[in-house]
Amino acid sequence: MDGFLSMGGYAAYVWSSYGAAAVVLVGLLVLSLTGLRRVERTLATLEAAKPRRKREPKAAPAPTATPAAETTP
């Protein structure tokens, strides 16, 4: 087992390569999964909200003109 772990004296290089591969592959997988979950959750809430919104259309928050232009001399 010792011989296996030391990799013929190149342990640092071999194991950091495999470690880097694990970090990259698992990291991408986890990021993709969490991204998918998050998007699916927002999609679910949006779709649940859709019929209600259709019946009572939200008043568009029209940006009212700021009176700043008038107050300036």
């Binding site: 991408l28 997988l29 993709s32 999964l33 991204g35 998918l36 998007v39 699916e40 927002t42 999609l43 949006l46 779709e47 859709k50 919104r53 939200k58």
Partner: peptide, 22 residues
């Protein structure tokens, strides 16, 4: 993983069209 990501991408498009519709 690319299938997972494509699913996320399609869902994101759907979210966007819903938001636009709202």
């Amino acid at each position: 993983v690319v299938i997972l990501r494509i699913r996320a991408g399609l869902a994101a498009r759907r979210v966007q069209t819903l938001r636009l519709g709202q």
